[in-house]
Design a protein around this nucleic acid. Sequence first.
DNA 1: TGATGTCGCTCTGTTTTACCTAGTCTTTGC
DNA 2: GCAAAGACTAGGTAAAACAGAGCGACATCA
Lengths: 124, 124
Amino acid sequence: MDAREITGAPSGANAAPSTPVCDAALFRAFALLGKRWSGVILGTLAHGPAGYADLARAVDGICDSVLAERLGELARAGLVVRTVAPGPPVAVTYQLSDAGAALVPVLHGLGAWATEHLVANELA
Amino acid sequence: MDAREITGAPSGANAAPSTPVCDAALFRAFALLGKRWSGVILGTLAHGPAGYADLARAVDGICDSVLAERLGELARAGLVVRTVAPGPPVAVTYQLSDAGAALVPVLHGLGAWATEHLVANELA
DNA sequence: TGATGTCGCTCTGTTTTACCTAGTCTTTGC
DNA sequence: GCAAAGACTAGGTAAAACAGAGCGACATCA
């Protein structure tokens, strides 16, 4: 979702009474989390700091270029902090920022919900 | 994320100690919610039942074919119930199922988090 | 009656995003 | 020297998302 879509976030004028703040905020949240792999990466980092290769191994199925792209986006969004240890060998570590860490309880809630309500037959 | 990726969900063997269930579940959750628009559609339906056109208007920026596709997926996943009133004129209504409704508190948490932590400059 | 609009999609071509994979440079270990 | 690891990058391909016209059924209006 690009800037145009963010700007055009729903303002609550939908079919039923709503809490406009919640919807606009949800729109913004999914601008990030609705991109493939971002939520899973954040969930993985919830367990602690990790390097690029750690993440590549942990997030099964993600390709290199998308992992690099997502980490960059999450860092720019302020959810992830990228720390470079000069080395040698140079080592880059990613960890959740305060904003990222604040999302963890929500991610846990999401995991609990999935455990309870999503079964193998949610595959269409 | 297709069946191969679901099957290959992380099993907790990542960089730091983890709660494997949470991660696998999170993976499954984002198999659905990591697709563009699904979370926002669910958030919109949290306000109450809506027709296709209602949703198309409410979810600013979504195109017709993706809305139809997403509603189908969410219905097949059991999060949304599609009800046909025979008419005339025929009318189709979508509403959250019990499983979908159970996600609403999480979505609210997500909205609250975004309100608190996501600002306009999260745009890369 | 004909024109226009709404609904709930479907269809097709186009654009964007995600993927695949080889590659680079630096460092380490055998 | 060679292989492996880390942290990506780059270019081509596949898949997802998008744009917009269209359909049948129905309702409304001049």
